[in-house]
């Protein structure tokens, strides 16, 4: 088996990297893939909290890298899904405890045993970000429909390109269709107009995401959640399926506009 390594990053903080990592991971595992998520946000770990695994942590990423435990010992299995694991970040250290080469070595070891290795990148463009993207086969850039988040995403895309990691793929998170309709929020088209990379998903703003995260559950396991559906479809698109973009708002032609955009999204 030779797994794919996908890094989820954004530049700006608070756009939903950790939630996206947990949910895309859960969705891939639910599709039958074996998945391991790595929290690369050393010093500010919270993927474990979102996944509801905080109380099971014994060893962490830095322990593995510094040889205090075996890789398998630091891997925590998800509460519900069989083939879904987490390697938590260390909370008491900082980003300099790990180097990009360490990450490449670690993930190469995991590649043999897993279909997907997801890395939750810290915010920013410094060491932690470099660590997170060093081993990536695919870089998923997540942004919100806000000018500041889009600006940071643009910077990140530039840095990812400079590292020869391809143009990256885009998720637009926390979209509010009714605000876009009123002209108060950047539309998907506006975001793609600037970033001009392949879109893999548009996730609506959905309270069920917060509710699920607070309970340490993945929202993708809730079939009624719109955001859950969006994350499931992102997972399917990442694994190579051709999935039509879901309608965010049934009343207008948003869906039609979206599918048009997706076709032109990869240019530039």
């Amino acid at each position: 088996m030779s797994g794919k390594i996908a890094t989820i990053t954004s530049g700006k903080g608070g756009v939903g990297k950790t939630t996206a990592t947990a949910n895309i991971g859960a969705a891939l595992a639910d599709l039958g893939f074996s998945v391991v998520c790595i929290d690369a946000d050393i010093g500010l770990r919270n993927l474990d909290v979102v996944m509801g695994l905080e109380n099971r942590i014994v060893y962490d990423l830095v322990d593995v890298i510094e040889g205090r435990c075996k890789l398998r010992q630091a891997m925590i299995r998800d509460k519900r899904l069989e083939e879904f694991y987490l390697i938590p970040a260390a909370q008491t250290r900082d980003k300099t405890a790990v180097s990009p080469q360490d990450m490449i070595r670690l993930t190469d070891e995991l590649r043999a045993d897993f279909d997907w290795i997801l890395i939750d990148s810290p915010a920013g463009i410094e060491r932690g970000f470099r660590n997170a993207i060093a081993p990536a086969d695919i870089v998923v850039i997540i942004t919100n429909p806000e000018v500041s988040a889009v600006r940071d995403a643009d910077r990140i895309i530039g840095l990812v390109e400079a590292e020869d990691k391809g143009p990256g793929r885009l998720i637009i998170n926390r979209v509010k269709p009714e605000m876009i309709k009123r002209g108060d929020m950047l539309g998907t088209e506006d975001v793609l107009d600037v970033l001009a990379i392949e879109l893999v998903g548009v996730v609506p703003d959905d309270e069920s995401v917060i509710v699920a995260a607070n309970k340490g559950l993945a929202v993708v396991l809730d079939p009624r959640s719109k955001a859950g559906v969006a994350f499931r479809n992102i997972a399917r698109r990442l694994s190579g399926e051709n999935v039509e973009f879901e309608a965010l708002d049934e009343q207008d032609g948003f869906f039609g506009r979206l599918s048009r955009l997706v076709k032109s999204g990869g240019e530039g």
Partner: peptide
């Protein structure tokens, strides 16, 4: 893209967009 900069004493020709930032 945002954060890139080009400084050059001569002329500059860009085949592509110049994004904000």
């Amino acid at each position: 893209r945002s954060g890139h900069n080009i400084r050059y004493a001569g002329h500059v020709i860009i085949l592509g967009d110049v994004n904000p930032g």
